[in-house]
Amino acid sequence: MTTDANGLAVDVRGLRKQYGDVTAVDGIDLEIRRGEVFGLLGPNGAGKTTTVEILQGNRDRDGGEVSVLGADPASATRAWRSKVGIVWQDESAPAELTVRETVRHFARYYPRPRDPEQVIGLVGLGAKADSRIKGLSGGQRRRLDVALGVIGDPELLLLDEPTTGFDPAARRRFWELIRTLADEGTTILLTTHYLEEAEELADRLAVVAKGRVVAEGTAAALRDRFGSEAIVEWTEADGRPRRERTGTPTRTVTELAGRFDEIPGLRISRPTLEDVYLRLTGQENAR
């Protein structure tokens, strides 16, 4: 642990950003501890990308305090940049170079880079190392982007919707990669609109909607706090399906057990993180 005393890799208070009349970020607070994987979850247009871009030092803010690795990203130095790895939402590598040439070249920018060959293997591009970037598939390009994000052995990795457009198998492989990096002690901030991804990877997550944090905590805590009711489903004797939302599912089932010998179509479920998420972000009617 180096720069900051409080053990926070990211410390944001009251962050604000306007685009003309539109308020993209409306007073966001974030605390990300060192070594943590933190998920920033929210629908498109919630202000996730703007927030991450401000943390990268790539966008000005209109208000609020921001400290990333103990420094204000608005006045980023080369030394600071060498400790922050960035993976953007859209890929951006020079098309005419090969994977190996590009990764090797980017390694030169950093004081203590990782081994390029090892990083190429880590992102699963070993077989494509000598292919030109223009010949890679979308998923392979994203993995190259991740390679370029981690080649400098960053203390903090900022990933903006890294798996958008991945097929399920590629997404699983990518998750493995993130876990590997996290196990090595890299602090990771990841934005996503995939619930499953946030739940799978993040130690803690914040749900943002309309530029504000509407909930924060572990996935389980969010579920407990915002979704303590259970849903009991069964089929009535006349064949009609019934669905009841209740805080006391056992009582409901006991009552049903008195009416039926075997309750037809019985299903008891807790709200998924997705249910909680949709309710928090005001998209409940989307279901």
Partner: peptide, 19 residues
């Protein structure tokens, strides 16, 4: 994630930036 898993970074950041 425990703090012990966080690598000792002091050394890693001491390398010189290339010219």
């Amino acid at each position: 994630m425990t703090t012990t898993a966080v690598r000792a970074r002091t050394e890693a950041t001491a390398g010189r930036l290339p010219g």
